Simulated scan of single mutants.
Amino acid sequence: MADDLDLVFKALADPGRRLLLDRLHAESGQTLGQLCALMEMTRQAVTKHLKLLEEANLVAVVWKGREKLHYLNPVPIHEIAERWIGKFEKGRLEALAELKRKLEEKADG
Protein backbone atom coordinates (compact mmCIF):
# COMPACT_ATOMS: atom_id res chain seq x y z
CA MET A 1 0.00 0.00 0.00
CA ALA A 2 2.78 2.47 0.88
CA ASP A 3 4.51 1.80 -2.44
CA ASP A 4 1.23 2.42 -4.29
CA LEU A 5 0.74 5.74 -2.50
CA ASP A 6 4.34 6.71 -3.24
CA LEU A 7 3.66 6.20 -6.96
CA VAL A 8 0.48 8.27 -6.74
CA PHE A 9 2.18 11.14 -4.92
CA LYS A 10 5.10 11.03 -7.37
CA ALA A 11 2.67 11.14 -10.29
CA LEU A 12 0.70 14.03 -8.79
CA ALA A 13 3.87 16.01 -8.04
CA ASP A 14 4.31 17.08 -11.66
CA PRO A 15 2.16 19.93 -13.04
CA GLY A 16 2.15 18.39 -16.53
CA ARG A 17 0.74 15.13 -15.21
CA ARG A 18 -1.86 17.00 -13.17
CA LEU A 19 -2.88 18.83 -16.35
CA LEU A 20 -3.22 15.50 -18.17
CA LEU A 21 -5.47 14.27 -15.37
CA ASP A 22 -7.51 17.47 -15.65
CA ARG A 23 -7.88 16.88 -19.39
CA LEU A 24 -9.01 13.31 -18.78
CA HIS A 25 -11.42 14.48 -16.10
CA ALA A 26 -12.97 16.92 -18.59
CA GLU A 27 -13.20 14.24 -21.29
CA SER A 28 -12.26 10.68 -20.46
CA GLY A 29 -11.39 8.14 -23.13
CA GLN A 30 -8.92 10.17 -25.18
CA THR A 31 -6.22 8.88 -27.49
CA LEU A 32 -2.59 9.94 -27.25
CA GLY A 33 -3.09 12.17 -30.28
CA GLN A 34 -6.05 13.95 -28.70
CA LEU A 35 -4.13 14.53 -25.48
CA CYS A 36 -1.06 15.78 -27.36
CA ALA A 37 -3.20 18.32 -29.22
CA LEU A 38 -4.21 19.86 -25.88
CA MET A 39 -0.75 19.88 -24.32
CA GLU A 40 2.23 22.13 -24.90
CA MET A 41 4.73 19.30 -24.89
CA THR A 42 6.09 16.74 -27.29
CA ARG A 43 4.37 13.45 -28.02
CA GLN A 44 7.27 11.66 -26.30
CA ALA A 45 6.84 13.74 -23.14
CA VAL A 46 3.08 13.08 -23.03
CA THR A 47 3.76 9.35 -23.52
CA LYS A 48 6.23 9.31 -20.62
CA HIS A 49 3.80 11.16 -18.36
CA LEU A 50 0.95 8.80 -19.28
CA LYS A 51 3.15 5.78 -18.53
CA LEU A 52 3.87 7.10 -15.04
CA LEU A 53 0.16 7.84 -14.50
CA GLU A 54 -0.68 4.29 -15.60
CA GLU A 55 1.90 2.84 -13.20
CA ALA A 56 0.31 4.87 -10.40
CA ASN A 57 -3.11 3.50 -11.44
CA LEU A 58 -4.39 7.02 -12.05
CA VAL A 59 -5.02 6.29 -15.73
CA ALA A 60 -6.66 3.15 -17.10
CA VAL A 61 -6.15 2.09 -20.69
CA VAL A 62 -8.66 0.39 -22.96
CA TRP A 63 -7.76 -0.81 -26.42
CA LYS A 64 -10.48 -0.25 -28.99
CA GLY A 65 -9.19 -1.83 -32.17
CA ARG A 66 -5.88 -0.10 -32.82
CA GLU A 67 -6.75 2.88 -30.64
CA LYS A 68 -5.46 3.13 -27.10
CA LEU A 69 -7.97 5.11 -25.04
CA HIS A 70 -6.97 6.70 -21.73
CA TYR A 71 -9.45 7.04 -18.87
CA LEU A 72 -9.09 8.78 -15.54
CA ASN A 73 -9.17 6.44 -12.54
CA PRO A 74 -10.11 8.61 -9.53
CA VAL A 75 -9.87 5.79 -6.96
CA PRO A 76 -6.26 6.47 -5.85
CA ILE A 77 -7.03 10.17 -5.39
CA HIS A 78 -10.12 9.28 -3.37
CA GLU A 79 -8.03 6.97 -1.18
CA ILE A 80 -5.59 9.80 -0.50
CA ALA A 81 -8.44 12.14 0.33
CA GLU A 82 -9.99 9.62 2.70
CA ARG A 83 -6.71 8.93 4.44
CA TRP A 84 -5.28 12.44 4.67
CA ILE A 85 -8.13 14.93 4.38
CA GLY A 86 -10.57 12.80 6.35
CA LYS A 87 -8.31 13.18 9.37
CA PHE A 88 -8.98 16.91 9.49
CA GLU A 89 -12.64 17.39 10.28
CA LYS A 90 -13.97 17.63 6.78
CA GLY A 91 -17.06 19.62 7.82
CA ARG A 92 -15.01 22.45 9.25
CA LEU A 93 -12.79 22.58 6.20
CA GLU A 94 -15.82 22.77 3.94
CA ALA A 95 -17.29 25.59 6.07
CA LEU A 96 -14.03 27.53 5.84
CA ALA A 97 -13.86 26.98 2.08
CA GLU A 98 -17.43 28.23 1.71
CA LEU A 99 -16.67 31.30 3.84
CA LYS A 100 -13.59 32.03 1.73
CA ARG A 101 -15.61 31.66 -1.49
CA LYS A 102 -18.31 34.06 -0.23
CA LEU A 103 -15.75 36.63 0.90
CA GLU A 104 -13.97 36.48 -2.44
CA GLU A 105 -17.29 36.89 -4.28
CA LYS A 106 -18.08 39.92 -2.13
CA ALA A 107 -14.65 41.43 -2.84
CA ASP A 108 -14.99 40.83 -6.60
CA GLY A 109 -18.59 41.99 -6.89
Rank of each mutant, 00 (worst) to 15 (best):
C36F: 10
T42K: 05
E105L: 13
K48N: 10
L69S: 03
M1C: 12
M39I: 08
K10T: 07
L58C: 02
C36I: 05
E27R: 03
R17F: 06
A107G: 04
E27F: 02
L96S: 14
D4S: 10
I80K: 12
K68I: 00
G109E: 08
D22A: 10
L72S: 04
K106R: 07
L72V: 01
P74Q: 09
N73E: 05
K90M: 14
T47A: 10
L21K: 00
P76Y: 00
E27W: 01
T42F: 04
K102M: 12
D3Q: 12
K102T: 10
K64H: 06
E82W: 10
K10N: 11
K68A: 04
H49L: 08
R101M: 11
T47P: 04
L5S: 09
Q34P: 04
G65E: 01
G29Y: 00
I80L: 14
L32S: 08
E55I: 05
A37K: 09
E54P: 09
K87Q: 15
G29R: 03
I77Y: 04
H78K: 12
W63Y: 08
V75E: 13
A97W: 05
G29C: 00
M1W: 13
A2P: 13
V75I: 07
M39N: 07
E82Y: 13
F88K: 15
N73Y: 01
A26L: 05
H25I: 04
E105Y: 13
K68L: 01
E27G: 02
D108M: 11
K68C: 07
A81L: 15
L32G: 03
L7A: 11
L93H: 14
F9N: 13
L52N: 09
K64F: 04
K48Y: 10
L99H: 12
R23W: 08
E40A: 06
A60P: 05
E94N: 15
V61K: 05
N57G: 12
Q44F: 08
G86I: 05
L12F: 05
T31E: 05
L32I: 01
L53E: 01
K90F: 15
A45M: 00
V46E: 02
L35V: 00
M41N: 11
E104P: 02
F88H: 14
Y71N: 02
V61N: 03
I85G: 14
A107K: 05
R18S: 13
V62S: 06
E89S: 15
G16E: 07
A97L: 07
R92L: 15
L32M: 07
A45G: 01
L5R: 11
W63K: 08
R18C: 14
K90V: 15
P15K: 10
E67R: 08
G86S: 13
K100T: 06
L7P: 12
L50E: 02
R43T: 01
L96M: 09
Y71A: 03
D22E: 09
L99V: 07
R66N: 10
W84H: 14
Q34I: 00
L38W: 12
V8R: 00
R43I: 01
K102I: 07
